[in-house]
Design a protein around this nucleic acid. Structure first.
Lengths: 168, 168
DNA sequence: GTTATTCTTATGGGATAACATGGGTAAATT
DNA sequence: AATTTACCCATGTTATCCCATAAGAATAAC
């Protein structure tokens, strides 16, 4: 497996630590660091290995280094990102900036997105997921006057609600 | 880790000293000096090891030596640079020129920019960051009507606001 | 097929090290 | 001499390391 899939909700302990889902760990590679970029339009952050940053740096390199766009993009990419150290048990401690961005307090939802994953406040994730499902259903309805039952049936998996529960 | 990432706000003590974030220190190499260049278009200064100056000189070489840009760039590059000594605890004392340029009084924001970092007056940083995030979001929206956070991603979490708070 | 055994994981807590910060004092500067 | 700067040491806080444990999951044994 080489992609981040499924979602899990883990607890944030009183020291601010959360376990990265065990299934995500090997995909991050041997690095003991987790890189974080916060989303501009949703209350979530993107997380992954260095490649997450490197991928964006490559996009930067294709831009004119003297342009305003380059300046802004580079500022946001490097100045607004975060590097979390992963401890021996596969945990990270969430920084204040991440908590601000996501609203996370005592539980965090880890959501696989392919070559990266996101970290959400569980309730916000649930709401966003619900909304996304609705929109997808509407789209389909609009396209093919058919019923929605098939669509709403199982387009997107359920949200894990307790320790260790996952959608695999 | 070999790039300057994330941002931190540190306190300037009554002697004028500030700690360089510990995560930035190793990237500077073994040099006990911090090189400073004041920014032309923002109230901030660029900081880094010797490579910072060297890199800028290389950029200069690529410019048309008869252009006005070259003249100005060369002027600020060589005229406005400073060298700060780093003490045993990883602190530097901010010069008057840096304080003038940035408006820093009692707190300083250290902002990673990849191969160098910037030092801002925290409030000014917060404002610029907000603006940058907004513009990047617009950039993204303009390029692709898409809504995935991977596309819109890139911006990041909140600004540290008190001593020691960081995005690590 | 069912039960026992071993492994994984998530989670907690204590001990320790790292870090930002403060202050004292001697060495330089002016 | 009066400041300012470099070097030391002190301290509270936070992060990091290490070990423990419960609950499941996977595997082996019966």
């Amino acid at each position: 497996m080489d992609r981040f899939l499924s979602n899990t909700i883990n607890k944030v302990d009183k020291k601010g630590r959360v376990s990265i889902p065990a299934s995500f760990r090997p995909i991050l590679g041997k690095t003991s660091h987790l890189y974080i970029l916060s989303s501009v339009d949703q209350p979530t952050v993107d997380a992954g290995g260095v490649e997450l940053i490197e991928r964006k740096e490559q996009q930067l390199e294709r831009m004119d280094p003297f342009s305003e766009d380059y300046e802004l993009y580079s500022f946001v990419l490097h100045g607004d990102s975060t590097e979390l150290k992963i401890d021996g048990e596969g945990r990270v401690i969430l920084s204040d900036s991440i908590r601000e961005q996501t609203g996370i307090t005592d539980r965090a939802a880890f959501v696989g997105r392919g070559h990266f994953f996101q970290i959400w406040e569980p309730e916000k994730f649930r709401a966003y997921r619900e909304e996304a499902r609705k929109k997808v259903a509407e789209m389909r309805r609009a396209k093919s006057g058919g019923t929605t039952s098939e669509v709403s049936g199982g387009a997107i998996g359920g949200v894990a609600t307790r320790r260790g529960e996952q959608n695999t």
